[in-house]
Design a protein around this nucleic acid. Structure first.
Length: 337
DNA sequence: AAGCATAGCAACCGCACAGCG
DNA sequence: ACGCTGTGCGGTTGCTATGCT
């Protein structure tokens, strides 16, 4: 007898989320804050599992998420942090608050792994790039070897982070010590910013309403070039048309209007901060707390908390490094690697 | 143009952990 | 101390887009 599933399998919808569902979820979070996910389906009437709601919010709808277009520095940080932390995507994501762990994980699996493999094969890869997948394989290495490698990786990680931190556009990287939410209000001049999800939904809906064909099954919805590429939206469209629950033009407009009234959107560009500011209330601070909480480096591993502090300290402190690491027992903490 | 292969990514699944009674 | 419940996390799957033949 295992633990029962988190939600009743019957009557629970799966697959891509529709804009209507997104709106319901966002309005719930707006009203009640992000949390108590169990209550979301009952409160909103969403036919979704609570886990699915949480996932949708954290990976897609929450404000301040940047999608796609990983910068070189972000890429470098991911590589180094992965080498340092292994597949601790949540921990890695805590250093890149605009990115979700899922996004980073996907990017690693689809791009970076391949890139590293290529560099290894060519034999002239970036010396700062670790020559392995991180500590996932380190168990097979003798302790002396992986301790040595740990220090090497830490060194390269620190180097990369220092570079990243001194990068002139610091909007890209925010340390966990910084207020995550402070980034939400920063003007985003980076190109591929998918940006505040509420904007996205609103934009989506507006374009959707604008482009809804007279025939419900016409495949021109979401093809407007102004919409950020969003396969999921296509999936939405597909699911809507295939299930026969097509939303007609009128409904689309109403949804859009409803959304506008809900979040006060008139123009997306000018109202970016609307939701952000409202997010600084309980829900946002809850999220912020969560971000801090999930950073296992600082909350769960005292030894690594020191390591983290050192990692972000001024460069060139190699003596201090040795001292600090000297206090850190690899034996006691080896299970974290 | 059609069919097939591959890439990219959103979402799901199951386990682990923390908090609470 | 124990069981229950909610949440977090990492691995994996499956769908869609894109590229290639």
């Amino acid at each position: 007898m295992g633990r029962p599933p988190c939600c009743d399998k019957l009557g629970v919808k799966k697959g891509p989320w529709t804009p209507e569902e997104d709106i319901m979820l966002v309005s719930y979070v707006q009203e009640h804050g992000a949390g108590n996910w169990k209550a979301v389906p009952t409160t909103t009437g969403l036919l979704r599992c609570s886990k699915s709601c949480r996932l949708r919010w954290t990976n897609y709808l929450r404000p301040g998420i940047k999608r796609g277009g990983f910068t070189d520095h972000e890429e470098k940080m991911i590589i180094q942090l992965q080498a340092l932390l292994g597949n601790k995507w949540a921990a890695i994501a805590s250093y890149l608050p605009e990115r979700t762990d899922n996004d980073i994980k996907n990017y690693w699996n689809t791009h970076l792994k391949k890139k590293l493999r290529k560099q290894q094969q060519s034999g002239h890869g970036d010396h700062s790039v670790p020559k392995n997948d991180g500590f996932s394989t380190s168990h097979s290495v003798s302790r002396g070897q992986w301790e040595k490698r740990l220090q090497t990786d830490i060194h390269t990680a620190k180097q990369a982070l220092h570079e990243a931190l001194s990068f002139e556009n610091q909007n890209h990287i925010i340390l966990p010590e910084d207020d995550v939410l402070s980034t939400y209000n920063k003007p985003s001049n980076q190109t591929p910013v998918y940006a505040s999800s509420t904007e996205n939904i609103a934009k989506l809906l507006k374009n959707w309403a604008r482009n809804v064909p007279t025939k419900p099954d016409e495949k021109s919805i979401f093809t407007n070039s102004n919409i950020p590429f969003d396969k999921n939206s296509m999936a939405h469209e597909n699911s809507i048309t295939s299930s026969g629950e097509s939303t007609n033009n009128k409904d689309g407009v109403n949804l859009s209007q409803a959304f506008d009234s809900l979040f006060g959107f008139e123009s997306f560009e000018s109202t970016n901060s609307d939701f952000s500011q409202s997010s600084t209330s309980p829900e946002a601070s809850q999220y912020h707390d969560h971000e801090r909480k999930k950073d296992f480096l600082s909350t769960e591993v005292p030894g690594l908390s020191m390591l983290e502090n050192w990692l972000f300290s001024e460069a060139g402190n190699s003596i201090k490094v040795k001292e600090d690491l000297g206090d850190f027992s690899f034996d006691e903490n080896s299970h974290f690697f």
